[in-house]
Design a protein around this nucleic acid. Structure first.
Lengths: 117, 117
DNA sequence: TCAATTGTTCGATAATATTAGAACTATCAA
DNA sequence: TTGATAGTTCTAATATTATCGAACAATTGA
């Protein structure tokens, strides 16, 4: 099984995190994750090709913002809450609180209820 | 006298602010400003050409992070604290608190030569 | 085994960012 | 007026990023 690289907590740098969060699509993804918890990549309804989404998820992962867990054919993404909060206390909360700017990339509203709640 | 453009508070966007803060040099400048208050551009001891410094200050200004006031031949720079705190509560404090990463670009007429002992 | 699902990686392109040096503007002081 | 100071703007080179489509790999289900 493929192994994904995640930076160690101490190797997470503020500049990289801020950069990762500075893209509206990535900010939207984080916003969705904060509201809904762990999600597979295909949960995000982003207006970009899947290869582009893959790139954005990787950017977030390599910056240390998210953790990606592979299960079957799906890649489940979560925010590295504890690491973020330890390394940069208050940062994620401030960003998420301010991210009303962020577009809503939650699961497609046109699709029937997926029973999640 | 030249008029510098500053975005109105409501036109300051989270993505742009995060992007502006994601550069180590700009982060260092903000860190110095937070510690020392208003400073002219030539106060910052950054390892780049003055045209490059000018570019970074402009990036911060256009993102809405700093205010630049012209007096004589000098351009005095301050953090737009109130606007940042109103628009994105807690963000700047979190970034500054986490910015021990940031290089120290304070004026150093006779700085300690680091590592020489 | 075959096909569908999920996502990555590669190749290419267009846009944007960083950087420096040179020329320039504006102010100030002698 | 002359020279020094402070910083901008222009031009150009280099590097990085975002984006897409096509090809690919791994897993799952029929």
């Amino acid at each position: 099984m493929k192994i994904l690289h995640h930076p160690h907590r101490d190797d997470i740098h503020l500049s990289s995190v801020l950069y990762a969060l500075s893209d509206p699509i990535r900010l939207g993804i984080i916003s969705v994750l904060a509201q809904t918890g762990e999600q597979p990549c295909n949960y995000f309804c982003v207006p970009v090709a899947k290869s582009t989404l893959s790139h954005h998820i990787r950017t977030l992962r390599e910056a240390g913002v998210v953790f990606v867990r592979i299960q079957g054919t799906q890649h489940f993404v979560t925010i590295r809450r504890a690491d973020m909060d330890t390394r940069f206390p208050g940062l994620l909360d401030a960003v998420l609180g301010a991210a009303s700017d962020a577009a809503d990339f939650s699961a497609d509203p046109s699709s029937p209820s997926d029973g999640v709640t």
